Amino acid sequence: MHELLSSLVRSCSLPRLLVSVLIVTLLALPAVAGQAAMKICYPDFWPFFHRQDNGHMTGFFHDIVTEALDRMDIQATWAAYPWPRCQHLVETGESDAMITFPSAKRLMYSKTHQDPFYEKKLTVFTYVRHPRLREIKAIKSIEDIRKLNLTVITYAGNGWNDKNIRTRGIKTYDTALLKNVWLMLANKRGDIVIEWPGGAWPDIRDTGTESAVLQTDVSLQAIPFHLMIGKMSPYADRLPKFNQVILDMKNDGSLDRILDKYIKRHQDDPR
């Protein structure tokens, strides 16, 4: 490139100002064409994002964001890390982006878009033929769980449960393994489980408790998920365009197509 520019300066009969403009334009082209791919870090967790043994990335968070970025002609690389490490990498600028819900702390070092591309609804599960099923189906809030004196089964380290359930004095039973939550519920070791259906049903099937576990229509909270890009990233100013692409994907059915590929919809079982 430098040899080409030197030759241009020596041989060109164009006015010096025009030559200068051409040089600046040529110097800018490689930077655009060779822009580094957006580095996205994630905690490996099916069905959000998961790298298979053959190296192929899958998961509906991955597919949604990848399709949106493809429509923007942005390439991305995905690297798995423990969740605290992911946040640190974005904060320090070592990675460009992560996928999570905006919090006051995260917004101190990153930016996001207006409309979430997915809302994770936390739903109440119970066991089949629970003697207080009618009352459970009528739950409208976490406070109702406390008033009904129901017990909750969860897994150790569930931050949402610690913050929203345990602090209210609601009796909670913990298990070290997430899958064991459904075995405990099936064996009536507690009254309810509060989980996201998309992640719950694969574990329910794996533990063979499908006939013993009942998903209700009670949803207690919807957690919005966004692409969050570090303020130091050169991609931070592309977030408004990303938001528009997400809206386009909602309107043209692309989001539903991706979600239907991963999430089996379960209706309330009247048993």
Rank of each mutant, 00 (worst) to 15 (best):
L5S: 04
L14I: 10
R16L: 10
L17H: 11
V19Y: 08
L22S: 12
L22Q: 11
L27W: 12
L29D: 00
F45R: 10
W46I: 03
P47S: 07
P47D: 03
P47R: 08
Q52K: 14
D53W: 15
N54Y: 04
N54A: 03
G55F: 13
M57Q: 01
H62E: 08
L69I: 08
R71I: 00
M72G: 13
I74D: 04
Q75I: 00
A76F: 01
W83V: 06
W83R: 12
P84L: 11
R85G: 05
C86E: 02
G93L: 05
E94G: 05
A97E: 06
F101Y: 15
S103D: 06
A104F: 14
P116D: 08
K121A: 14
T123W: 10
V124R: 10
V124S: 11
F125T: 01
Y127C: 00
Y127S: 01
R129W: 04
R132W: 07
I139N: 04
K140P: 02
E143K: 13
E143W: 07
D144L: 07
I145A: 09
K147T: 01
L150P: 04
T151L: 10
I153C: 03
T154E: 00
W160K: 07
D162C: 10
R166N: 06
R168A: 02
I170N: 03
Y173P: 03
T175P: 08
A176I: 12
K179P: 07
N180R: 06
W182Y: 14
K188I: 02
I194G: 04
P197S: 09
A200F: 14
I204A: 12
T209Q: 12
E210N: 05
A212D: 15
S219R: 08
F225L: 06
H226N: 04
L227H: 02
M228F: 03
I229H: 00
G230D: 01
K231C: 09
R238G: 04
Q244R: 13
K250A: 05
D252L: 15
G253I: 09
G253Y: 10
S254V: 01
L255K: 15
L259F: 10
Y262F: 15
H266V: 14
D269F: 14
